[in-house]
Design a protein around this nucleic acid. Structure first.
Lengths: 201, 201
DNA sequence: GTAGTTACCTACTAGTTGGTAACATTTGGA
DNA sequence: TCCAAATGTTACCAACTAGTAGGTAACTAC
């Protein structure tokens, strides 16, 4: 099973699963999952549609793989950056910073734009499970922050949703031409979330 | 041109534009615009597809009308609730409270889930213009708040995006079974936005 | 060289979709 | 009562879609 990184370039250029995932996630993000046909993807890769079926069982499979790859990447990098000695607020910030970085990339955005309604029951369940994991992770960081005093909020569940909403929505404007850097978005978002925008009463 | 609210019920039940808009927006929200066919809509109204074409020129026209109706409703009610004597923060809260109410309704949600990428250039431009109006309105309330001291934030553009993202995302979970009341969402969201969740440093 | 495998292609099916043309029926008004 | 407009319907099309069947060239191991 040849993977990417062959030393000797083959005469016959073979596309890999990761090629497909990369191109697909970009197109899903630009045009939407429903409006991206397998022929579009195949054409972008200079192959034909049945070639895609050699590598993937279905269109949904491609989408799920896009999400899985990004999710695994996120988890791995998070484990790397995380530090259990830090307080809850800082660990929440680490989480959110990485989350923003990932969903700002073409590939990572599939984590956000995927829709369990277009998926098979098992696929949808898998996708929802990943989302739930992320929610739970952020929520537990918030709770830790409440414990150690670095965060002050009366409830974590809806708060976590609110925060995710704010971040996830960037996937929506990316497409409308609005482009901000990850740095300025993170700066602004966390300022709103942690400091609030209220002035003197 | 008979509008809704006929006193005498006709023998031949004629569907109105608002009937179509009501059913369509509900279905668009539940299943997504792309995955809702005109036949689905027609069937739900117990008519046939060409009947819809008597009332609307295209599928996009239906979507745009869904958005327009909600937008006009929002604008009208906002003018009613608004009070120029209040400070910027309170006027922002009035805006956000109504916005949340509207997009929490089946019909209002179309304002959020519409996607200019599926529209014709002119339709997309119209839709973006409405969105821009809303953004500008919120932003000007934030700016007024900065002037009168009721809001304290260094920048309004990205902040406005952040806030809209947080609210708009509720349209995404509605469908996943998460249901919170407008009251608790508004309470939580505004608490995060205005007070922040940061604890002692 | 040859056998097996990998990775792709051409050609197709079966179904859906937005949209249209032509025709039918109901209704309100004169 | 009769007409014209309003509001449907049946029957269709052309385009597109996910997915499949079956064949083939190239590479690999022996």
């Amino acid at each position: 099973m040849p993977v990417a990184g062959n030393i000797a370039p083959r005469k016959r250029r073979a596309i890999s699963r990761s090629d497909i995932v990369l191109v697909s996630s970009t197109m899903f993000q630009e045009r939407g999952y429903d409006r991206t046909s397998l022929e579009d993807i195949a054409r972008a890769l200079s192959v034909t549609k049945p070639s895609l079926y050699y590598h993937f069982a279905s269109k949904e499979d491609i989408l799920l793989e896009c999400v899985r790859v990004s999710y695994v990447k996120f988890r791995g990098e998070l484990a790397h950056r995380d530090n259990p000695l830090l307080n809850g607020r800082m660990r929440a910030e680490i989480f959110l910073r990485l989350y923003l970085e990932v969903i700002s990339q073409d590939m990572g955005v599939s984590m956000v734009i995927a829709d369990d309604r277009v998926m098979s029951p098992s696929g949808g369940e898998q996708y929802l499970a990943w989302k739930r994991e992320l929610n739970n992770d952020l929520e537990s960081r918030l709770k830790a922050g409440i414990q150690d005093g670095s965060i002050d909020v009366s409830e974590t569940h809806l708060t976590s949703f609110a925060i995710f909403g704010m971040f996830n929505w960037v996937a929506q404007w990316k497409v409308s031409g609005n482009s901000f850097s990850v740095d300025e978005m993170f700066e602004r978002f966390t300022d709103v979330i942690f400091n609030g925008i209220g002035g003197r009463r």
